[in-house]
Design a protein around this nucleic acid. Structure first.
Length: 202
DNA sequence: TAGGCGATGCTCT
DNA sequence: GAGCATCGCCTAG
């Protein structure tokens, strides 16, 4: 399958708009010998002045890349074992980002199965930690420009001019305790590759 | 199949 | 020393 890089003028910089616009876009991971890619089906917005956001208390060694300009990767380790990947938003210094929570595998299924240690399609990249493992996203990709980098980049299928807007549902965010009532999670309705409890993704 | 819970190690107080 | 933007295993039904 062929993909076309997204351009900055095709994506909104405002965090909530970006979280919704990324649904249906493709995340491509190129390694020397392989390509793996999937459609983004679930995101969460971490906005400015958001108590649940890693940027809430200001810049630190861990969250530094969250303060880069828009469309950079913020990769961090959580619970000691899992990695998560975000797309930064707003402007340089704002400290806002969109967490990519799940993708629908499109290409490189075999290498994703090897990285994940399962052949169960639905479990390959459902959840932020799983998708990082499936795409071999590590800390070396923290801070890369997702519109220009050769290893990890945002795309649309080459046959399409503009990302197709899918039916996007919204809910509270998963796994947080602060600002837990805000409807800042977005997902493609009815898609089986969306993570989280069923009640949150009707 | 759905829900509960322990592992796990880093970050920040 | 507490608190995680999670995962996979185990159990119950």
């Amino acid at each position: 399958m062929r993909y076309r890089r997204l351009r900055a003028d095709e994506l909104p910089v405002e965090t909530v708009d970006l979280a919704q616009a990324l649904i249906g876009c493709v995340l491509v991971r190129d390694c020397p010998d392989s390509r793996s890619a999937g459609r983004i089906v679930e995101t969460e917005a971490y906005v400015r002045d958001d108590p649940a956001s890693h940027a809430y208390r200001g810049p630190s060694a861990r969250n530094a890349s969250m303060f880069l300009g828009p469309f950079h990767a913020y990769v961090y380790k959580i619970y000691g074992t899992s990695l998560c990947v975000n797309v930064t938003s707003e402007t340089e210094g704002a400290g806002a980002a969109v967490l990519v929570r799940a993708i629908e595998p499109l290409e490189g299924l075999q290498i994703m199965e090897e990285r994940r240690g399962t052949t169960r399609m639905r479990d390959l990249a459902r959840g932020p930690g799983r998708l990082c493992q499936a795409l071999d996203i590590g800390m070396q990709l923290d801070g890369v420009d997702l519109l220009r980098d050769k290893r990890l980049w945002l795309a649309v299928p080459a046959s399409r001019e503009v990302p197709v807007r899918r039916r996007v549902g919204k809910s509270v965010r998963i796994g947080i305790t602060k600002a837990a009532d805000r409807l800042l999670r977005f997902y493609e309705r009815g898609n089986p590759f969306v993570s989280g409890p069923k009640g949150l993704s009707p």
